[in-house]
Design a binder for these strands. Structure first.
Lengths: 149, 149
DNA sequence: TATTGTTATACTCTATAACTATA
DNA sequence: TATAGTTATAGAGTATAACAATA
């Protein structure tokens, strides 16, 4: 009995937001206080793209450039991010995480991973293998045409 | 080769937020203008829980009661929600979607489903069956202890 | 002339506090 | 006394507009 695209889409739209809500609630419970979701997303982006710019942060986090500039300013003030001149293009800035910023991101990720691993312990090895394989396929298809970077 | 809980958690934390970003971007592209994410989530909640209260909206959407009251007031002003007295408890209000509110929610969901179905068309029937089955298992384990309602 | 980033201003959303009405 | 909901006020976040500096 094959699964139609419509049926599968229904399941994806049902499960993915539900799991996301649980993840968000878990992260909220543990994240550094007074760190907003966009701020946290900016930290994760900078972690993955060291030396990135304000414009790239704006695009990835989904803000205008002025708002991203203000957000970055707040992260710099809190010693989570460094903002230095770009070596060749003097219009740009070079953003990187401080040791403190990296610690915030990594601690949050590790706590969320531990939480997830505990919940996934309820599944069998075979089920976890199936979930892992299926999610990789899901990612390939859903993110297919336009990847962000 | 079994998959450890840690490996599986890593994949979940990688794929679920990525898929969610795509879904959100798609919904943003199509949603009624000037309808915020919390407003939309409230509409979806009221759709699934007809006759729900302001307090329940607050809890589900993640707002305080005063903020939920203001949000509901905005939805009522826009003729997307009706707010009537509760039949037995005169402190409470009874919230329901208008035909317009229902149309907004359903149109958004159908467009997102169509978008997803198109992307999932890149998978084989067998892969879609695997994704569907795996997501159901994922939901059961991740949402295990505390379901929201 | 286009691009990167910042500042100034106004608006929206949300929380806290205080209140009313009902159970 | 506790609960459901509202209103008033203030604070945080974001967008638009305007600007400065560099390519």
């Amino acid at each position: 009995m094959p699964t139609s695209s419509a049926q599968c889409a229904q399941t994806v739209l049902d499960v993915v937001p539900a799991v996301m809500r649980v993840l968000r609630a878990e992260m909220r419970r543990h994240r550094a206080p007074a760190l907003t979701v966009p701020q946290f997303r900016a930290l994760v982006w900078i972690e993955g793209q060291p030396g990135t710019s304000v414009s790239q942060v704006a695009e990835h986090v989904g803000l205008t450039r002025p708002s991203a500039s203000v957000l970055v300013e707040a992260l710099v003030r809190r010693r989570l991010v460094t903002r230095r001149p770009h070596p060749t293009d003097r219009r740009r800035v070079t953003l990187d995480l401080t040791a403190g910023g990296l610690a915030v991101v990594q601690a949050s990720r590790e706590r969320t991973l531990a939480f997830l691993a505990e919940r996934l312990g309820a599944l069998s090895d075979a089920q976890r293998a199936q979930v892992t394989e299926a999610l990789i396929g899901l990612r390939q298809s859903v993110l297919a045409p336009a990847d962000e970077s």
